[in-house]
C-alpha cells in the first residue's frame, strides 16, 4: 500500500483534511495570536531600544547617568547624542543636559548597556512605537528615556536583581570606606608627611 504510486498524495490530503476539521474544535491547533486584541507576554530577555534608569521619584535628580559619554562613543551607528549640564560659571556637571537617542537609527545592539560603568542605561521592551511623525517622534529625549528602577525590575527581574545587589554592595563598601576614613581622621589628625622627619 505504501508503495502504490499516488499514496503520498492521498496521505497529504488526509493530513490537511484533519487540519481543517481539527482547527474548529481543537483551539490549540491555531497558533495565530490576533495581535491588537491579544498579545503574547513579553519575554524577560527581549530587548528593543535603550532607556535611562533613575532611582527614587525624581527623573531629573535620580538619573544614574553621569554623562561620561562612553555609550555615545561606543554606539556603532552613532545614534546617541549627549550634551553635559554646566553650572552658572560654566563648569561641567556630572549630569547630561541633553540625552537623545534616535530610535530610527538604533539597531538594538545593546552595546551602550554593556559599556556603561554606572548601570545607567538598560534596554526597554516597549515595541509599539509607530507614529505619524517620523522625524520628531522617533528621536527620544531624556524625559522620554528616563524610567524608574521599578520599571526596569518589572521588565527584567533577574537582571535587575543582580544589578541592584551589585549597586547595594558597592554603596555599602563605599560607606564602610568612608566611615573608616572618617574614623582615621578623628583618631589622629593627619600630619604633613614631612612633619614625621626629625
Amino acid at each position: 500500500m505504501k508503495h502504490t504510486p499516488g499514496w503520498g498524495l492521498l496521505k497529504g490530503l488526509f493530513e490537511t483534511a484533519r487540519n481543517f476539521v481539527g482547527s474548529y474544535y481543537q483551539p490549540g491547533r491555531l497558533t495565530t495570536i490576533e495581535y491588537p486584541d491579544e498579545r503574547l507576554p513579553v519575554q524577560e530577555n527581549f530587548r528593543n531600544f535603550p532607556m535611562l534608569i533613575y532611582d527614587g521619584a525624581d527623573p531629573e535628580r535620580g538619573l544614574r547617568c553621569v554623562g561620561c559619554k562612553i555609550c555615545e562613543k561606543e554606539c556603532p551607528p552613532q545614534c546617541i547624542y549627549i550634551v553635559l549640564e554646566r553650572d552658572r560659571s560654566g563648569k561641567v556637571q556630572k549630569r547630561p543636559r541633553l540625552f537623545d537617542i534616535d530610535v530610527s537609527v538604533c539597531m538594538s545592539c545593546q552595546i551602550c548597556v554593556e559599556v556603561c560603568p554606572f548601570d545607567a542605561i538598560k534596554m526597554n521592551t516597549e515595541y509599539e512605537l509607530s507614529t505619524g511623525d517620523r522625524f520628531g517622534a522617533l528621536l527620544l529625549r531624556k524625559a522620554e528615556l528616563a524610567k524608574p528602577n521599578e520599571y526596569y525590575r518589572r521588565l527584567h527581574p533577574t537582571e535587575a536583581a543582580e544589578v541592584d545587589a551589585r549597586l547595594a554592595a558597592a554603596a555599602q563598601a563605599k560607606a564602610a570606606a568612608q566611615a573608616k576614613e572618617q574614623a582615621k581622621l578623628t583618631a589622629k589628625p593627619a600630619k604633613p608627611a614631612w612633619s614625621t622627619q626629625p
Partner: peptide, 10 residues
C-alpha cells in the same frame, strides 16, 4: 478561509 483552516490558520 478554507486555505487558512487547512493550514491551521484562521
Amino acid at each position: 478561509k478554507g486555505l487558512g483552516r487547512l493550514q491551521n490558520r484562521m
